[in-house]
Protein backbone atom coordinates (compact mmCIF):
# COMPACT_ATOMS: atom_id res chain seq x y z
CA UNK A 1 0.00 0.00 0.00
CA UNK A 2 1.33 3.42 -0.92
CA UNK A 3 1.14 6.14 1.70
CA UNK A 4 0.05 9.68 0.79
CA UNK A 5 0.99 12.48 3.17
CA UNK A 6 -0.84 15.81 3.11
CA UNK A 7 0.19 19.26 4.36
CA UNK A 8 -1.77 20.74 7.23
CA UNK A 9 -4.33 22.73 5.26
CA UNK A 10 -5.24 19.71 3.16
CA UNK A 11 -5.31 17.49 6.22
CA UNK A 12 -7.81 19.85 7.81
CA UNK A 13 -9.91 19.70 4.67
CA UNK A 14 -9.69 15.92 4.78
CA UNK A 15 -11.35 15.87 8.16
CA UNK A 16 -8.16 16.08 10.15
CA UNK A 17 -6.49 13.19 8.41
CA UNK A 18 -3.02 13.78 7.04
CA UNK A 19 -2.08 10.28 5.93
CA UNK A 20 -3.82 7.85 3.59
CA UNK A 21 -2.85 4.28 2.74
CA UNK A 22 -4.04 3.50 -0.75
CA UNK A 23 -3.93 0.42 -2.96
CA UNK A 24 -3.38 2.18 -6.27
CA UNK A 25 -1.13 1.87 -9.31
CA UNK A 26 -0.13 5.46 -10.08
CA UNK A 27 0.30 8.90 -8.54
CA UNK A 28 -2.74 10.14 -10.43
CA UNK A 29 -4.86 7.31 -9.06
CA UNK A 30 -3.68 8.10 -5.55
CA UNK A 31 -4.41 11.81 -5.74
CA UNK A 32 -7.81 11.33 -7.35
CA UNK A 33 -8.80 8.93 -4.57
CA UNK A 34 -8.28 11.57 -1.89
CA UNK A 35 -11.20 13.51 -0.41
CA UNK A 36 -9.32 16.69 -1.24
CA UNK A 37 -8.92 15.86 -4.93
CA UNK A 38 -10.89 18.98 -6.04
CA UNK A 39 -8.24 21.09 -4.34
CA UNK A 40 -5.44 19.33 -6.19
CA UNK A 41 -6.94 19.30 -9.69
CA UNK A 42 -8.61 22.08 -11.66
CA UNK A 43 -11.92 21.60 -13.46
CA UNK A 44 -10.07 20.29 -16.52
CA UNK A 45 -8.54 17.49 -14.49
CA UNK A 46 -5.07 19.04 -14.57
CA UNK A 47 -2.94 19.07 -11.45
CA UNK A 48 -2.92 22.64 -10.18
CA UNK A 49 0.20 24.48 -11.23
CA UNK A 50 1.47 25.15 -7.71
CA UNK A 51 0.84 21.68 -6.29
CA UNK A 52 4.04 19.71 -6.06
CA UNK A 53 4.07 15.94 -5.65
CA UNK A 54 7.05 13.91 -4.54
CA UNK A 55 7.38 10.13 -4.59
CA UNK A 56 10.06 8.92 -2.22
CA UNK A 57 11.61 12.37 -2.38
CA UNK A 58 11.57 12.82 -6.15
CA UNK A 59 9.41 15.41 -7.88
CA UNK A 60 7.09 13.51 -10.22
CA UNK A 61 7.52 16.23 -12.83
CA UNK A 62 10.96 14.80 -13.41
CA UNK A 63 9.48 11.34 -13.93
CA UNK A 64 6.23 10.29 -15.51
CA UNK A 65 4.10 12.87 -13.76
CA UNK A 66 0.70 11.59 -12.72
CA UNK A 67 1.43 8.35 -14.56
CA UNK A 68 4.34 7.61 -12.24
CA UNK A 69 3.86 4.08 -10.94
CA UNK A 70 3.83 3.48 -7.21
CA UNK A 71 5.58 0.62 -5.44
CA UNK A 72 3.84 -0.91 -2.46
CA UNK A 73 6.26 0.88 -0.18
CA UNK A 74 6.06 4.27 -1.89
CA UNK A 75 5.52 7.46 0.07
CA UNK A 76 3.75 10.21 -1.83
CA UNK A 77 4.09 13.67 -0.37
CA UNK A 78 1.90 16.58 -1.50
CA UNK A 79 3.51 19.97 -1.00
CA UNK A 80 2.22 23.41 -1.89
CA UNK A 81 4.74 25.42 -3.87
CA UNK A 82 7.05 27.58 -1.82
CA UNK A 83 8.00 30.82 -3.43
CA UNK A 84 8.52 34.44 -2.61
CA UNK A 85 10.38 34.12 0.66
Amino acid sequence: MAVVLLPSLLATEAGGRGSFELDVDTVGDALRALPVAPLLFDEGGELRRLVNVYVDGTDVRFGDGLATRLADTATVRVVGAVAGG
Partner: peptide, 8 residues
Protein backbone atom coordinates in the same frame (compact mmCIF):
# COMPACT_ATOMS: atom_id res chain seq x y z
CA UNK B 1 -9.39 31.03 -1.92
CA UNK B 2 -5.91 29.63 -1.67
CA UNK B 3 -3.10 30.52 -4.01
CA UNK B 4 -2.08 26.87 -4.33
CA UNK B 5 -5.36 24.98 -4.00
CA UNK B 6 -7.63 27.34 -5.89
CA UNK B 7 -11.13 28.74 -5.41
CA UNK B 8 -13.64 27.18 -3.08
Amino acid sequence: NNWVYGAS
